[in-house]
């Protein structure tokens, strides 16, 4: 299976994503330059984390108009998988691939630490390898990760089982410290309507081996591979 990892000017998690899918899973991957227009036959597109275009104007606001994004949107429209992580999630929201927006953390602080997430649905090609309700440790690293959408959108995301991850405490419950950024309804990751685009602020690609603190993100990549290969 081939992954296409988009590199925008300012992306800095593209190599981590490559490490996850090539070194850990043994799949193939290509870096896709933001000015390219084709996906080089990628089965799965990853929009990685970073600070594309210096986060100027708003995070992801300028990257969404990169030439490669037309191909990414067409790929998503075909129902093919797109994994949008951190800055990639911000770009996907700006591009309209996912609803809502990511705003400045309520604390106004950049937060970089391991957090606990609860897997809210396994009905997705990204999380089929987890147990529903499973608590995983995945790091976050962002200053603008507060998920915002209007109430009707949030209700719909919940009704359609499209909230994939929520921030929780170590015990899987929520308290006043379990939400690191003020995201509405503790949302850490969501699916699009077709369930083929996942946007999440936490970094599963930085949690693929115990050496770096957690291997809990590996199952997400394994789920994608299992589903696409099937």
């Amino acid at each position: 299976m081939k992954f296409g990892i988009v590199t925008f000017p300012g992306s800095n998690c593209d190599y981590d994503a490559y490490h996850a899918v090539v070194d850990q899973l043994g799949e193939t991957a290509a870096y896709l330059w933001h000015k390219d227009r084709d996906l080089q036959g990628a089965d799965v597109v990853i929009l990685p984390g970073g600070f594309s275009y210096g986060d100027y104007l708003r995070c992801g606001a300028i990257a969404r108009f990169s030439p490669i994004m037309d191909a990414v949107a067409a790929h998503a429209a075909r129902g093919a998988p797109v994994l949008a992580i951190c800055n990639g999630f911000q770009i996907a929201c700006e591009a309209g691939l996912l609803p809502g927006a990511l705003l400045r953390n309520a604390s106004l602080k950049y937060v970089c630490e391991q957090r606990h997430l609860r897997v809210e649905t396994t009905d997705s090609r990204f999380t089929a390898g987890y147990e529903k309700g499973q608590v995983v440790r995945i790091p976050i690293a962002h200053g603008e990760g507060r998920y915002h959408a209007d109430d009707a959108t949030l209700d719909r995301l919940e009704a359609e089982d499209r909230v994939v991850f929520r921030y929780v405490g170590a015990d899987g419950g929520s308290d006043d410290r379990s939400n690191p950024n003020g995201s509405l309804r503790d949302v850490a990751g969501i699916l699009n309507e077709g369930r083929n685009v996942l946007g999440m602020m936490p970094h599963p690609e930085r949690a693929v081996e115990p050496l770096v603190g957690s291997g809990d993100g590996l199952a997400l990549f394994e789920s994608i591979v299992a589903r696409v290969a099937a």
């Binding site: 104007l57 708003r58 606001a61 108009f65 809502g100 927006a101 915002h148």
Partner: peptide
């Protein structure tokens, strides 16, 4: 199109 985010 660009300068404001219609969501927020």
């Amino acid at each position: 199109k660009l300068l404001a985010n219609p969501v927020t």
